[in-house]
Computed example of a mutant assay.
Amino acid sequence: MIVARCSKAALLAAIAFFFTLVVFNNTTDFDSNYQFVRHVLMMDSTFPGNKGMWRADNLRWVHLAFYIGIIGWEAANAALCWLGAWRLLRAVGLPAAEFRQAKSIGIVALTSGMLLWFVAFITVGGEWFLMWQSKLWNGQEAAFRMFVVEGIVLVLLQLPE
């Protein structure tokens, strides 16, 4: 039981560490990933002549708002995952009902992270802004990978010990 509980806390902490590094990279090398967001929103590398170009957005303030929103979402996820992992570690030796209750922040954090990857990247970026058409500015594989990783951890977290 203790091992399973520690495993859940460690996996949630690993997701927290990942989000922490993502936020660090996005803030210390702001322009690299800003360019990714900008090109996805401008749809400037989608298939020539596609009928979805009316969706393209060329306003820099919109690009900046999207990017800052993504960084904010990632930072909130990092904080929630760290808090969730800490709560799990504090509850490792407690009765089952209390450990189950300690899972709540982690469940919220992982769900929020999955929504980030699925809504912001796979749905809005991938389908609305047709990111899937771009060979250069396509983050769907990475987004899917993180969606699945977080989903696996979410399932494991919710399993009884």
Rank of each mutant, 00 (worst) to 15 (best):
L83T: 13
V23H: 01
L94A: 10
G113V: 10
G113N: 02
W86S: 10
A76Q: 00
A97H: 07
R60D: 13
T28G: 06
A97L: 06
D57Y: 00
G93M: 08
V62L: 04
V62G: 00
L59D: 13
L21K: 04
T28K: 10
F66L: 00
W132K: 02
L110N: 05
W61E: 12
A96D: 02
V108P: 10
V23Y: 01
P95Y: 12
I107R: 14
A91D: 04
I122P: 10
H63K: 02
R100S: 05
M114K: 00
T20F: 09
I107P: 13
E98C: 01
S7W: 14
W54M: 05
M131I: 12
A65Y: 01
N33S: 09
V23R: 03
C81E: 04
F121H: 14
W82N: 09
D29S: 11
F18K: 12
S32N: 15
A96G: 01
G126V: 06
R55G: 03
A78S: 15
M131E: 15
P48R: 15
D29E: 14
T28I: 15
A102M: 09
I107F: 13
G93L: 06
A9T: 01
V62N: 08
F99K: 00
A78V: 12
I15K: 09
T27G: 10
E74H: 06
A75F: 08
R38A: 07
G52E: 08
W86H: 07
Q35F: 03
L89V: 11
